[in-house]
Design a protein around this nucleic acid. Sequence first.
DNA 1: GAATAGTATTTGTAATACTATTCTGAGCTA
DNA 2: TAGCTCAGAATAGTATTACAAATACTATTC
Lengths: 238, 238
Amino acid sequence: MHSAFVQMDGVKRSLHVQLAREIARKILSGEVAQNEIIPGEMTLCEQFKVSRTSLREAIKLLTSKGLLESKPKVGTRVTGRENWNFLDSQLLDWLIDIGDNEAVYRDFLSLRNALEPEAAALAAMNATAQQRIQLSATFQRMDDISKDFNVETWTEADLEFHRLIFLSTGNSFYLPFANVLCTMFKSFITHSSIQGSTCINEHRAIYSAIMAGDSDKARQANIDLLSKSKRRLPNSTK
Amino acid sequence: MHSAFVQMDGVKRSLHVQLAREIARKILSGEVAQNEIIPGEMTLCEQFKVSRTSLREAIKLLTSKGLLESKPKVGTRVTGRENWNFLDSQLLDWLIDIGDNEAVYRDFLSLRNALEPEAAALAAMNATAQQRIQLSATFQRMDDISKDFNVETWTEADLEFHRLIFLSTGNSFYLPFANVLCTMFKSFITHSSIQGSTCINEHRAIYSAIMAGDSDKARQANIDLLSKSKRRLPNSTK
DNA sequence: GAATAGTATTTGTAATACTATTCTGAGCTA
DNA sequence: TAGCTCAGAATAGTATTACAAATACTATTC
C-alpha cells in the first residue's frame, strides 16, 4: 500500500479507520459470526495488505467499541451482540452503511420516544443562558423556514433544535444522543424519506415551555410532537 | 518498562489500557482542559516511559471514545465534552474512579427514569422464550432472597433482573444500557449506599406484566418502582 | 503586499525483533 | 486411571527504528 490516505466518501480517512470499517461491516452484517475467532494478525495483514501496526490499531478501535476481544495465544474473538456499543455514532454509521435500515430506524424512533420528552423536561430546568440563546436562534430559523418551506434548510434546523435540547439537559448521559441523532439524520437525508410537514406549532410549544422553565409542559409538548409524527410512519413500536 | 502486564485493581491490564486510563483521568477530571493540545507523542513517551507503539494505542482508544482527536502536524487535541461517549461502560468506569460521584449517580438515576419504563414495555412485547425463562429464574431468586434477606445476593439478583429487561427489549439501542447498569451497580456496591428495602411487590408487578405480555402494565409498574425508590434518595431531578 | 514554493514538525505507516501470556499435551505422580 | 506439573508452542503485547504523508509556518518572488 503506497498512499497512506485514500479519498473515500469525500473525506480523507486514515488507513486503520478504513480497515476498522471493513472489519466492522463483516461483524455487523453477520458475515463473521458472534463468538467466532477471527484469523490471526499476520493472516489478516496479508489479507488486507497492511502492516501489523495499522491492523492492530484497527482491532483496538473495534475492541474499544465492544466488537472484539483479544487474548494472547487464543486470538481475537468477536464478542456477543449485547456488547456492541450501539450508542456510538461511529458504529452507528457503519451499521447504517450496511443498508437494511428498516429495523434501525424503527428502534431509534422507539428510543427517541422514551428519551426526548424527558430531555425536554430537563432542558427546561437546566439550560444555561447561552443554550437558551442558541435555542431561540434555532427556533427562529425554523419558524422562518416553515413559512417559506425548503426541505434541506428545514431538516438542518430541525436537527439542530433537537440536538440542542439534548445538550441543554445538564445531564452528561444525554450528551451522546446529540451525536447519535446527527448520524441518523444524515442517513435520513441521503436515503430520502423526509416528510414535508414541519409540525411548527408542536415545536413552538416545546420551545416556549423550555424558555419558560416549565418542565412538565415541555415533556408533554414533546410527547405530542412524537405522537403526531409517529402517525406518518409504518408503526414505531413494532 | 520491563514487565508488559502489571497487577492493578486485582485484574491484569495491558499497558496501553493502563495508559489510556491515566490520560482519561486527567481529561475527565479537568486537569487538562477541553480543546487543549496535549504534548506530542515523543514527549509523552518519555513522560510515561513507554514505547510510541503503546502510547499510540492508548491515544487511539481514547480517540475512539471521543475524548481525543489527532491530526498530523497540529497534534492531539482534547475534544469538547459533548463528544465524550458517556454511555461507554469503560469510560464510565474511569469517570467513577475519579470520585465525586454525586452528580454521576443523580444523572444516571434520571436516565433510568426515562428509559426503564419504556424498556419494560418493550420487553413485555419482544422478550424471547429463552429470555422469559431467564427472567423467571432471576425473579424467583429475588423472591427467595427477599424472604431471607442478604444484601450481596439481593444486589446481584436485582442487577440481573433489570439487566435482563434491557436485553429483552429486542431493540439494539437499549443493549448498551445493560452494561452501563452493571458498571454503575459495581460502583454502588463498593461505595456502599445500598438500601435495605427490596420493593419485591413492585418487582413482582413488573415481572408479571412482562410475562403476560402486557406492555402498558409493565411500563406503569416500572414507573411505580422508580417513584418508590426515588423517595429514599436526596432528590433525583436536581 | 499577496501569492507561491519550500521547509520543518508532527502524526501515520511499515518492518522487525523480542517478550508475556496461556493453551496444549506429554510425562510424572498418587 | 485420574490428576497434577512442567515444558513447549502459538499468539497477542511491547519496543525500536525508519520512512511517508500532511499541514502549519517561513521565505522567496513577483
